[in-house]
Amino acid sequence: MEHSWCLIFCSCFLIVAAAMNGTVEASKQYSVGDHIGWQQPSSNDTDVYIQWATSKRFHVGDSLSFEYRNDSVLMVDKWDYYHCNSNNPIYSFNDGNTVINLDRPGFFYFTSGVLDHCKNGQKLMIQVMGLHQRAEPPPAGANPREVGLAPGPHPSSGIVVKTTLTSGILALTVTVAALK
């Protein structure tokens, strides 16, 4: 009898999820720069953060983890990003291990607080997508090669579970048949 209740509960869950006709996405934490972390790029690899971000798809609820030494992370506006201006950051961090929650859709801009590092490519622009949102055209003045402006080769940043009303009805039918 206990097994029957479990089947009924699971079937009800699937039906509710199907009725919502939605997608459930797990949030993901990205380590900025992967194995190199957040540091001034080498002179022959100044596009490292552009390449890193274009291979990802960011969604509301995801987060970025910056790991660094003797440096900082500034969250800045678009103008400050393009001009490597560190005079008026939105947020400034220098703890060596900074986690930024991506809490809204849109563009996010980050630079190193060290002017020469930023000018040498230690800056990151990403586009965060909300639910059911497609990538937008780049903001005015954006270099098309800049980060996150086109979908990368990876279709999603997290685990995606999709269900439909048909699959929910099928699950209920199987459950009812198993209970008889």
Rank of each mutant, 00 (worst) to 15 (best):
V76N: 03
A171V: 00
K180A: 05
S31M: 01
S92K: 07
T164C: 07
D95L: 01
V160E: 15
H35S: 14
P151S: 08
S42Q: 14
P155I: 03
L172R: 02
K123T: 00
E2M: 01
L179P: 08
K28L: 03
S43Q: 14
R104G: 04
P89C: 01
N94S: 10
W5A: 00
A135H: 15
D116Y: 11
A177V: 11
G152S: 04
K119T: 05
L102R: 04
D62I: 03
V24Y: 15
N21E: 14
D95R: 01
H3T: 06
N85T: 03
T163N: 09
T111Q: 08
H154E: 13
N120W: 08
Q39H: 13
T46G: 07
V32C: 04
C12S: 11
I169H: 04
S43M: 11
S156H: 11
S157G: 15
Q39G: 04
A135T: 13
M20G: 08
L124D: 04
L131C: 09
A150T: 09
T111N: 14
Q40M: 14
P137F: 09
P151M: 06
F58W: 10
D116S: 14
P155F: 08
G121F: 07
D62G: 07
L165D: 04
Q51M: 02
L115W: 10
V176I: 15
M1T: 13
S55C: 09
Q51K: 13
I90D: 05
S4R: 11
L165A: 12
V160F: 09
C12N: 08
L179M: 11
L124C: 05
E136D: 12
A53N: 07
K123C: 02
F9V: 08
Q40S: 09
C118D: 06
